[in-house]
Design a binder for these strands. Structure first.
Lengths: 337, 337
DNA sequence: CTGAAAGCGCTTACAG
DNA sequence: CTGAAAGCGCTTACAG
């Protein structure tokens, strides 16, 4: 109904007038305060409905110095791993009554700084950040100095004290490599990844498994590339040209593995019979790739939920001890290796 | 520096005192008003920096009745198509100085209503919505009655007057089908999709292409399922059991096609040689699937950017005529068909 | 070019 | 149980 002029908004004052109470009473009703008798509350609610009142959270939050928005910053939504994480974070946050201010950095530190500032100005109640490559380790301290709760996701940011949610990368890749080793492979490639702590951790697991079996680590079988399908394709193509040809590979992540599957197919090879391939992450797609991918399950969605839960905890209890969630990597065997 | 008590925030009043000007001057400087001489402005900025001032957009926006946040609501980030769209929307919006309030509905209309309300209360300047299945057609009118600019994405919401960004589904699938027909296929399946306008439009294109070649539409070759990899796997498996066995299929979208590729591989069949398969969307993954997918390119990222651009237009010029962006579908041939 | 004043829409003690 | 009052941090005419 009502062709309203854009000028004047309907406020609690109008509701108060309509319900014949004071505006404080209206405010109390809106917060379901037990101070207000049910009858009065109902009358107020009815009046609000009738005149088309909508709560203005900005005003409320400004006055109350609270905030129901949380910034979440991711770097590569094009990788289903991060998309699944984001979904997990968002779900948990919305359940808790928050709303997410989301930004995509595309691995650009500049852009990350921009959105970080914007979110601060917007008065976000906290931040969930998967730092872009090249983020200075000092960022956690800086955000802390803002008085803003922060949980870092997936990529650690040095040894400082901050909340973190990620995966046990070393142990995960160790398990994947170990699986390949147990199957009798000895010339095993490592595909994809170019930089960052996560790569270091995964490589460490790779080397550890090899060392345990007294297999020399062959630099030549470590082929670096962007952690994308394209990178996976390139690295697998390169790997297949090595002599003698490796018989297996562990990939930096699932997306790299998908690209590798493509390169294999291109040469008429099929993972699982002609070559053994392991991914990492267990994104949903892994169950239906061609062939289905054997991988390390770190449950990305859950990871996101944990990150959100940690942040929520910190917001409620600022003094609480630092929390860390490390997804326990599980080997899931499908057909690729 | 400065161990600040959480209690009192640094405001423009403090900046004003530090720079020895009035608070209006500070406000003007912050907006880069030409009214303020460069020297004064510099002094103010310096003071702000020194005392660690950070702008409070909520206060500013409340007072100025403006907003720099835009709600974007998507339904399935697990599908790279939507992830790529979101990235496009976000990029465009951030470039324009906005920040995105993001929500994931997971095709749940209830949840969509919740976030819609929250975004309204948060005072979003506008909305980009990819409606969940089952969204009432009246939603566009309702949002309009809120005075909130809205652009609907991907799935139309009836014939009403609203801004829209999507793709020419009918023409796209027509082209895909046509391609298969030209290659000599006559028993062609249609895989995946269960409900919604997009499916209707795509099916229409499918039938049109068939009709043009006087090929009877065979209900039996239309196999419905969720538009997911899993759905693709199921439907392709089912299709391969039909007698006589179809030789080609067009999929509801790429994700379905990926699942179909998996099912094909499972039976020792390879798309492109043993079976011709067409996707739809051309998500990035399509270039490196196994084998690379022939598909219809509707440039998801661009679609998102257009949606954002339309919204920005509408915000600037509320009275402007309704705009529609329909991605022009391009056939891209890779190896699957 | 700069200052004093009013006000955005709400919340929160504080009286009564 | 309800009302009057102050104030969150900013912006915007309006004087001067």
């Amino acid at each position: 109904m009502g062709k309203e002029k854009t000028t004047r908004a309907v406020t609690i004052l109008d509701v108060a007038a309509a319900a014949e109470v004071s505006k404080s009473t209206v405010s109390l009703v809106l917060k379901n305060s037990p101070l207000i008798p049910a009858e009065t509350a109902e009358r107020v609610r009815e009046a609000a409905r009738k005149i088309g009142y909508v709560y203005n959270s900005r005003a409320g939050e400004l006055r109350g110095k609270t905030s129901k928005t949380i910034g979440v910053i991711v770097n590569d939504l094009t990788n289903p791993f991060f998309a699944e994480i984001l979904v997990g974070v968002e779900r948990k946050l919305v359940e808790a009554g928050y709303i997410v201010l989301m930004a995509h950095t595309n691995e650009d530190v500049e852009r990350q700084n921009t959105v970080l500032r914007t979110m601060r100005e917007q008065g976000a109640a906290g931040l969930v950040l998967c730092p872009a490559y090249g983020t200075p380790k000092t960022l956690t301290k800086e955000v802390e100095s803002w008085g803003m709760p922060l949980v870092v996701m997936v990529r650690t940011l040095g040894p400082g004290k901050y909340d973190f949610a990620g995966a046990d990368n070393e142990r995960g890749i160790y398990a994947a490599t170990r699986h390949l080793l147990d199957a009798g492979h000895t010339r095993i490639g490592f595909l994809g990844g170019r930089t960052g702590v996560v790569l270091e951790q995964r490589l460490k697991g790779f080397r550890a498994a090899l060392a345990e079996r007294d297999i020399a680590f062959d630099e030549d079988l470590l082929v670096a590339a962007q952690p994308t399908r394209k990178g996976g394709h390139e690295t697998m193509s390169a790997l297949l040209d090595k002599k003698p040809r490796p018989t297996a590979a562990v990939c930096y992540n699932d997306v790299v593995a998908f690209g590798a599957l493509s390169a294999l197919g291109e040469r008429g090879l099929r993972a699982g019979q002609d070559f053994a391939l392991m991914g990492f992450d267990n994104v949903q797609d892994a169950a239906h790739s061609n062939p289905p991918l054997s991988t390390i399950d770190i449950r990305p969605g859950e990871l996101g939920e944990h990150a959100a839960a940690i942040l929520l905890d910190r917001i409620q209890t600022p003094a609480r001890a630092r929390q860390t969630y490390l997804a326990d990597p599980q080997l899931v065997l499908r057909q690729s290796g």
